[in-house]
Design a protein around this nucleic acid. Structure first.
Lengths: 136, 136
DNA sequence: AAAAAATGCTTCGTATACAAGATATCATCC
DNA sequence: GGATGATATCTTGTATACGAAGCATTTTTT
């Protein structure tokens, strides 16, 4: 006993690693990383968010957001524009390319969720999500 | 509906982020990162493991292990030695410095586990760990 | 014994993640 | 209206994390 198997941080990191790996694999055809896909998903719900709003919603550091937005812009998924009312703010919009992939990406997300949760029963899934949220 | 809150990968990453942050903070006085501490913990159970064995036990890529062992050696926590029977293998041993911190580090680990799981009841904790393992 | 395959580790490239600091812009106060 | 502080973003440095390529060594094949 007293191994890393008892360590909740270890268990969480490995569970995340596994889930992340599954999505990563399915995103390969798109040339998107999981974080990039997550940001596109948020913009899909509300276009024109600022970099700061995105970071706040997804609980991401500003440095992480900044770099990821750069790569999304390089890939032609988003466009950046400074807000005319507050020139400190950068507003992010989806490009036509991102709009076209929107539905397909959403399906991919849902399929991954289903695959990851497959080992759990329906009740366990609901409980599991609640416990994960309760940690916060 | 249909936000990132429903995404199991998102929930896992944020739960991990939180747990990781708590341990990271408590390890600051030691100058150790969470992964470095995890490796020291494994070596504490069995000294002289090879780099490959450590990676296998902790489910880590060989590249990740390699870099982390370098930093642990730089910090004077471990020593590396090539196995005389198989010169491809690098065997890792704890230094006196690591031995001295052993008990204190173990306590830190346990305190963090307790703090992270504080929001959950006793039954929930056991169930939560089981569900995390079941995902694998 | 020579060739081929497998193994253990390192190196390189890219993408998170966060701390800390720099920069530009806005708001407020006197 | 200019100084001060707050805000939004970006930059830099370090540490995971993994794929892929490379190197040395060992094992297997022929």
């Amino acid at each position: 006993m007293e191994s890393h198997e008892d360590c909740i941080i270890f268990l969480l990191s490995k569970a995340y690693q596994k889930a992340h790996g599954i999505l990563k694999e399915r995103l390969r055809p798109y040339g998107l990383t999981t974080l990039q896909q997550l940001i596109l998903g948020t913009l899909s719900l509300e276009d024109g968010q600022s970099a700061g709003e995105i970071g706040q919603r997804l609980v991401l550091d500003s440095a992480t957001v900044s770099g990821t937005l750069d790569r999304l812009a390089d890939g032609g998924w988003i466009s950046k524009e400074t807000d005319p009312n507050d020139r400190r703010v950068v507003r992010i919009s989806l490009t036509a390319k991102a709009r076209e992939a929107e539905i397909s990406l959403k399906q991919t997300r849902q399929q991954c969720n289903a695959e990851i949760l497959k080992p759990l029963s329906l009740e366990e899934r609901i409980l599991f999500k609640r416990l994960l949220k309760d940690l916060r």
